[in-house]
């Protein structure tokens, strides 16, 4: 029975013996890449400061992740693109004018406390970038609400400060908001392109939608979370957001302004912190939309996307436990069997 075959060392492992090409790294870096259009728009409108703030967030996030694993003497995951993404999203959620220590503190809270202390990628309960931002907003309420006017002049470093569209809408009402922009069309245009005050990466709806399209084409995200989120915001804005009573609100303003597009496509869809079951993701999205509108219309803050997603993050495990996917061969339990 001697055979040449015997001289080989054979590898024994469990099936399947072939695997798909998808990796965590590839997903993370693709998401990073899909945010590039929005980053470019933020640099265009807010100047080099946008690159500075975002870059600081990314570098510090990756560095904190690396140092943490080094400290624990474990294999570092700093290169998997997920710390980069957290930094990038945090940067995109900051106002342009923040001092240098704000990104550092934000990254520390996001990476170390929210992500790594819970066990790292896959184990965190909350979206790290959003906890980072929430921490900053509560700790530095003033710094975090100074909104620079978009200048679209690459060199302008000390832009005038102004209010965000949502801020104006909340404090002064729709009529005033339109006066500021000139007309409804100009308001929509400003919101679409990103020519409005706001967090760095949230203002340009078009750039964000291009990125979201990439994620849809790659099938990294599905419609369930973002569409139920946005649709809920739209319906509630239409129903309760108007000055002249029920069903007079303008849904488009609410959909395009603030952090909704960024939040719905890039943050609510965060794999780790949203439900995995598609039906559950619809519930998750509706919850996000409802809380967002509750805060925008009745709360103390003009914007509610961040808190909405964070609150719904708490419910993600519960949703996953209660909503099961439709099983093959599922049998409807009859009354007799139930007994």
């Amino acid at each position: 029975m001697a055979t040449q075959a015997k001289s080989h060392e054979l590898i024994v492992s469990v099936s399947p013996h072939v695997r798909g090409k998808e990796t965590v790294e590839r997903i993370m870096w693709t998401v990073n890449l899909s945010l590039l259009p929005a980053v470019i728009m933020s640099i265009y409108y807010f100047g080099p400061r946008a690159a500075y703030v975002t870059g600081l967030c990314i570098v510090s996030s990756v560095l904190f992740e690396h140092l943490y694993w080094r400290f624990l003497d474990r294999k570092t995951t700093a290169g998997d693109g997920s710390a980069f993404l957290t930094g990038l999203l945090l940067g995109m959620n900051l106002p342009p004018s923040v001092p240098f220590y704000i990104p550092l503190i934000g990254s520390l809270v996001a990476i170390i406390i929210t992500k790594l202390l819970f066990g790292g990628l896959g184990y965190n309960v909350f979206n790290p970038a959003l906890i980072g931002r929430a921490f900053l907003l509560i700790s530095f309420p003033k710094l975090m609400t100074i909104w620079s006017e978009p200048t679209a002049k690459f060199i302008a470093m000390d832009a005038k400060t102004t209010a965000t569209p949502l801020g104006l809408l909340k404090e002064e009402g729709l009529t005033h908001l339109m006066e500021v922009f000139g007309s409804k069309t100009e308001l929509y245009q400003g919101l679409l392109w990103g020519n409005t005050a706001g967090s760095l990466g949230e203002t340009s709806a078009i750039a964000l939608l291009i990125g979201a399209a990439i994620l849809f084409i790659k099938r990294y995200i599905t419609w369930h979370t973002p569409f139920s989120f946005i649709a809920t915001v739209g319906v509630l804005a239409w129903a309760f957001g108007g000055d002249q009573g029920l069903f007079t609100g303008d849904p488009l303003i609410h959909i395009l302004s603030g952090g909704l597009i960024l939040g719905a496509f890039f943050m609510a869809t965060d794999y780790v912190t949203c439900p995995t079951v598609r039906k559950g993701q619809i519930i998750f999205g509706i919850g996000c939309g409802a809380i967002t509108m509750l805060i925008r219309l009745k709360g103390g803050f003009p914007e509610g996307v961040m808190f909405a997603i964070l609150l719904m993050n708490c419910f993600a495990p519960l949703i996953d436990r209660s909503i099961k996917p439709k099983m093959f061969g599922a049998v409807k339990e009859t009354k007799e069997q139930a007994k």
């Binding site: 998808e22 965590v24 997903i27 995951t77 066990g119 790292g120 990628l121 896959g122 184990y123 990294y220 794999y271 780790v272 949203c274 995995t276 079951v277 598609r278 996917p325």
Partner: peptide, 11 residues
């Protein structure tokens, strides 16, 4: 292998 990132591909 690493922790499940709950991407839902398997579902």
């Amino acid at each position: 292998y690493s922790a499940c990132i709950r991407c839902g591909s398997c579902l």
